[in-house]
């Protein structure tokens, strides 16, 4: 183990300090490092930080490795999130989170995606900061951000890249932090490079070369399209639900009720305290009641998808 580290993240206007052995912290952070303030960013928000302590897991702290690795909520005591073969996260009385991570966890995104991110998401939900799985696109007229919540394979990245070609600002390919009251929601996009599959390759600009393909996901990261970090959360304009269709695509249609709520709710509250989950679902429903939601048929003509969204002004 190397010496101690203290790294600061900013998520949804909340400051998070991650402390522990430097190499273990690095493995726990993974893609969370994109949330570190960059040179020239606004100063991190004032007020007390959420402290995440990263420690080496002791014998018996971590469930045995298994396939598939499952991340689950354990009511306790102590209440915790555990991930098979990776580690455990406990929620401390001082409002902090303690991540106990196996020392031999691989130096890839495993510890972050399966443990640290679910744990921080659970902790931040308690402060009204909701991690949502959605692409975030700033409309060309600057009037707010469209969120594109969708499960893997439903056309989220395809629609995002189509809209990018039409002048939307791609602020996140996959997730962001939803904050603010339900009738005035704002989003802090998580600025990660988009991951592109075969369906979307033709939508990349000529100078944006994808990296190596992930053998599991079948997608390749495109570092050249890594979004900028926005200085503060932006107003949410509404929600776009992609629906892959044969042919060129078609006009947008309004979506209400369960069809609007299910795609976003199903991505948000897995491995969570049931009480937090209930509050989160109620908040998401209130946000969706206050903002429009549309289905966008995504075909093979980017101009049709762009026109469908442009007509929503």
């Amino acid at each position: 183990m190397t010496g101690g580290a203290a790294r600061t993240l900013v998520a949804g206007g909340r400051r998070v300090e991650v402390r522990g052995p430097a190499d273990l912290v690095a493995r726990a952070l993974g893609p969370l490092a994109a949330l570190e303030p960059r040179a020239g960013d606004a100063p991190p928000p004032a007020g007390p930080a959420v402290v995440a302590r990263v420690e080496v897991a002791g014998p018996g702290d971590v469930p045995p490795d298994a396939r598939p690795r499952v991340t689950r909520w354990v009511a306790g005591p102590p209440a915790r999130i555990t991930t098979d073969g990776v580690g455990t996260a406990t929620f401390d009385a001082d409002g902090g989170v303690t991540l106990r991570v196996r020392e031999d966890v691989p130096a890839n995104d495993l510890a972050a995606e399966r443990l640290a991110i679910p744990a921080l998401a659970e902790r931040l939900r308690r402060d009204g900061v909701f991690l949502v799985h959605a692409a975030c696109l700033r409309a060309p007229d600057g009037a707010g951000v469209w969120l594109v919540p969708a499960a893997r394979g439903s056309g989220k990245t395809t629609l995002s890249l189509m809209l990018r070609r039409a002048g939307h600002g791609l602020l996140s390919d996959d997730r962001g932090f939803l904050v603010g009251p339900p009738d005035a929601p704002r989003i802090d996009p998580w600025p990660e490079a988009p991951r592109v599959g075969d369906r979307s390759l033709y939508l990349l600009p000529p100078d944006a070369m994808p990296g190596p393909r992930d053998p599991v996901m079948g997608k390749a990261s495109v570092p050249a399209l890594t979004p900028p970090r926005v200085p503060a959360p932006l107003p949410v304009r509404g929600f776009l639900l992609p629906r892959l269709v044969p042919g060129p695509g078609g006009p947008a249609t309004p979506v209400r009720g369960a069809a609007a709520l299910a795609p976003i709710a199903s991505q948000v509250v897995v491995a969570t305290d049931p009480a937090t989950a209930a509050a989160t679902l109620a908040h998401l429903a209130a946000v969706l009641a206050a903002r429009p939601c549309y289905a966008i048929p995504v075909g093979d003509d980017p101009a049709v998808a762009a026109a469908a969204v442009a007509a929503l002004a």
């Binding site: 209400r256 009720g257 369960a258 709710a265 199903s266 897995v270 679902l281």
Partner: peptide, 28 residues
């Protein structure tokens, strides 16, 4: 189930299993 949570929107509902992420959408 104790691991399921219900949310409503526009009179319709979604019930979500917190461990598996599986959900069930329902009309009014």
């Amino acid at each position: 189930s104790d691991r399921a949570r219900l949310a409503e929107l526009h009179g319709e509902a979604v019930v979500l299993h917190l461990a598996t992420g599986r959900y069930f959408a329902a009309n009014a």
